[in-house]
Amino acid sequence: MKKYWRIAKMALEEHLVYRLNIFLWRFRNVVFLFSLIAFWQAVFAGKGEIFGYQKQQLFTYVIGASILKALVFSSRVADLAGMIKSGEVVHKFLLKPWQVIGVFFSRDLAVKLTDIFFTLAEAFVLIKLMRLPIYWPEERETIWLFSLSCFLAIFLFFFLSFLLSLTAFWVDNVWAPRWLFGAIFLNFFAGAFFPLDILPRPLFQLINLTPFPYLVYFPLKIYLGQLKRGEIYQGIFLLSFWLVFFVLFTRWTWQKGLKNYSPWGG
């Protein structure tokens, strides 16, 4: 356990080395969030409710989605694909006394820690600056269930992303599949830009059959108190199912990939 803690600490230090770089990265995120809020403010101009969402609920969703993106999507697992291609995976993981999943998860924790710290600070400033109405749940149980769904979502995303990187065992260039599934599908189908229930019903139901909505949309719906108890438990059951599925599938793919693997040099 100690070694993974050290890895997380090193990843954190490495992450904070280039301060100007971090400043620009955060500035970009702030402007992006700012523009998204400005967009929804234009949509809400003179209206109290839209798509069944009140102003307060929708702005909470937008801010919440940006916080959950930092918490769930911040990851360094994409590096694994490059390491597989370059052969680095051999001397960095296979010949070392640690588990590749443990190493990457430790690195992810460090990145998530910085991301969530900055995102919370930025969200606070934007809420104050733009005087955004924010919803706070009253029941303690809602907070617990929301936290549980976020916790499971972090692991679900980790294994999903890990699996995508493993395609490097079979494909020469993994940039496009990662971009297609990891960025486009994920952001849209997870509800990272807008609540999924504004989509036409059949499309919404189709998306609900995939694991993506459980990463952002589902936890936020719990937070907003828009789901009944039964729906929450059913959602958490499905989220756990997807998690177990991806854990097993990732392990199987890793072992299959290693059998298939022949790196050059090193």
Binding site: V171, N173, A176, P177, W179, L180, I184
Partner: peptide, 10 residues
């Protein structure tokens, strides 16, 4: 080609 297809689809 797969890359080209996947990125066009994206």
């Amino acid at each position: 080609r797969f890359n080209a297809f996947a990125s066009s689809l994206g």
